[in-house]
Amino acid sequence: MFEPFYISFKLASITVLILFLISLPLSWYLSQTKSKIKPFIEALTALPIVLPPSVLGFYILVALSQNSPLGAFFKDTFDISLVFNFTSLVIASCFYSLPFMVQPLQSGFESLNKNMLEASYLCGKSKLQTILFVALPNIKPALITAVIITFAHTVGEFGVVLMVGGSIPGETKVASVAIYEMVEIMDYKGAHIYSAIMLGMSFIVLLSVYTFNAKHKRKFGL
């Protein structure tokens, strides 16, 4: 009965993990660079916020289908299809939720005092050590915001998932798609239960983010 939730959460967890690893160097770079290409990268990263999910879904579908070089390569080499399965959902979600991970981390890093970062270098610490032991621990609110909002946003996605993954039960049928289908077949009871769960969870997630951030601010004055 609740398999779509399980798929949603599995998808969101994997997406958060992958996006964190990608966004950490990217957001650090954006926060420190004075390069002229910075606005281009920022605009590219922010695109998923403004694009209709159908547009994003369409392009991802085109890029990953077996007619594209990438799709053909994976099909021929590993015998993996990149569309209408769980892998394609992960790829699509990583694009879709990218700005929600990058932007909070970037503004967190930008808010750090330059003197403090320099002090770390002058203590003999490398960039990586500085990011891990000085920068990240001092942007905990931004870090928590990035992780949780990315998770919640991925659970909440609908259009991209539908286009790239279809609605294969047990494989790509996530909670939001399940609700859509229940409404289509006029199963309002199921739709009510699912929607209430989504609503409740989303609220609790947001509430915990704001509560944590307020507490952290009092404690460390950051």
């Binding site: 002090a119 000085v134 950051l222």
Partner: peptide
């Protein structure tokens, strides 16, 4: 001059 300690 200031603000160079690690708050964490």
């Amino acid at each position: 001059q200031e603000n160079a300690l690690f708050p964490n």
